[in-house]
Amino acid sequence: MKFILKILKDFPAYLWSGWGAIASIFLFIACWDVGNQIYGDLVLPAPLETFKTLALMLQDDSVWEQIDITLYRAFMGFAISLVFGSILGLLAGFFATASMMSRPIVTILVGMPPIAWIVLAMIWFGMGDETVIFTVVVASFPIIFVGALQGTRTLEDNLKEMGESFNLPWHMKFMDIYFPHIFSYVFPAWVSGLGMSWKIVVMAELLATSDGIGASLAVARSQLDTPTALALVVIMIGSLMFIEYIILEPIKREVELWRD
């Protein structure tokens, strides 16, 4: 509770520190506008037109429906990866054999391109939610698994011993010695896993479903409707930035205050 209050208290200062980021976004939009002036509306619509299209789209309920579908898939996939990746990673970290054996499997999972997984998933599950969720899980699971694994593998004996010398009860050993260390590895892994889920979900939808943001993107492409395509991209990037910079980053800062 105290922790959440501290995050909220530091939040305005954090926002205030974001002017640099905002300036750089505006600079990017300016470059985008230059691109529009050079290549014309069909190839690269002007930022203003894109944002106008976006505003129109956001008034449309059916667009929100598509966003909901995509959100559902991304979060289902992410939640499954989060739960299983964290638990299995932590367990594997505690046993030397398990961590050794899981390494090649992780390499396979990380090394296999998501597009190949989509093809396989389409064969296995057909066109629909399962294919997308499966692909998201396969892509983000190894990231979280490795983070959790590293977290337990790198626990320091020195601190364990210190805890024993003070006869810490088990719940203190866990909360004060193991948890902060493990969390400092697992939390960043969750953040990258979430980013990965959000990217993969759109790609999987584009290829394997008839609804969701990804499918809308496919429709926009077939109709050469560049403003709509860009508006969809803006929705994706905007939501990712919102989650990352407004929600996760302040938490991360507070959690990792003790780090160098």
């Binding site: 020195n158 601190l159 210190m162 010398s165 003070f166 203190m172 010695i177 400092s184 003790w258």
Partner: peptide, 26 residues
């Protein structure tokens, strides 16, 4: 009994006071 180690062995995620009070809380 308590133990003072050669390299300190403080918990990096706890501030000075929380580190000192560890044994008391235990």
């Amino acid at each position: 009994s308590s133990f003072a180690f050669q390299e300190g062995r403080l918990l990096p995620w706890k501030n000075v006071i929380d580190n000192i009070s560890l044994g008391l809380i235990a």
